[in-house]
Amino acid sequence: MPTFQSKSFTGESRINSLTQRIRQHPFLLFGLPFIVVVVGASFGLSQLTQTKFDHRDMRHKKVEKEEALGIGKDRRKLSIQEEYWRLQAKTEEDWEQVRIERPNGSDQH
């Protein structure tokens, strides 16, 4: 029965060659990732800043529309609780029941 030829594991030699290259060129391990992070962060921050300015401009345009319509600072703030108490304070004598005519075609007794 023939025996197989023994070959050494080449993965170890590849790892050694990679570590030698990194030692010869430390830019690949430290400099390149640093530059990628700085450039990527610059693009990301520019998008966030643009979004912030767009939101602020939209809010200012809304205020300008209110000013054009004549809505001023003198308008009363709406409070649900105050409206509730105002409606509760009204008595039943403040309104009058008015009967309206029935629409044509509805003959219900």
Rank of each mutant, 00 (worst) to 15 (best):
L48K: 05
F4G: 04
K52S: 11
L69R: 05
R75V: 11
H60K: 13
T10N: 08
L32F: 14
Q20W: 06
L69H: 01
L78P: 00
K7H: 07
H60L: 15
R86K: 14
V37T: 12
R76F: 11
L87K: 15
I35V: 15
Q81I: 13
F34I: 10
F27C: 00
S6Y: 03
R56Y: 10
R14C: 03
Q97M: 11
A68E: 11
I71L: 06
S79K: 06
R76S: 01
N16Y: 10
D74F: 02
I15A: 13
K61E: 15
V98F: 02
V98T: 05
E66M: 15
F9K: 05
L48F: 09
R23I: 11
K90F: 05
L28F: 15
E83A: 06
E82T: 07
H109I: 08
L18D: 05
F9H: 09
E67Y: 03
F9V: 07
Q50T: 14
E64C: 00
V36G: 02
R59L: 12
S8F: 03
W85Q: 13
I22M: 14
R21S: 09
V63N: 04
A41Q: 10
K90E: 12
D74K: 01
K7F: 06
A68K: 12
A89Y: 00
N16K: 14
V98I: 15
K73N: 09
E96C: 00
R56P: 00
A68R: 10
Q108R: 09
K61M: 11
P33K: 07
F43Y: 07
Q81P: 00
W95S: 11
D57K: 13
L45E: 03
T91R: 08
Q88L: 10
F53I: 15
R56C: 03
D54H: 01
G44F: 15
T19S: 11
A41N: 08
E96Q: 10
Q47S: 07
L87A: 10
E92V: 09
S42G: 15
K52N: 10
E82R: 07
A89F: 00
Q47M: 07
Q88F: 02
I71R: 02
S13M: 03
R23M: 10
E101F: 04
Q47D: 05
R99F: 06
R59W: 06
S6F: 06
E83M: 10
L18C: 07
I71T: 01
I100N: 04
P2K: 01
R59C: 02
K61N: 13
K7R: 12
F53T: 13
H60R: 14
W95D: 05
D57F: 12
L32I: 15
G40F: 04
Q88R: 14
D54V: 01
K7Q: 12
F43Q: 07
L29C: 01
R56M: 12
T3Q: 11
Q81R: 08
G11F: 02
L45Y: 10
R86W: 04
E92A: 08
T51C: 02
L18K: 03
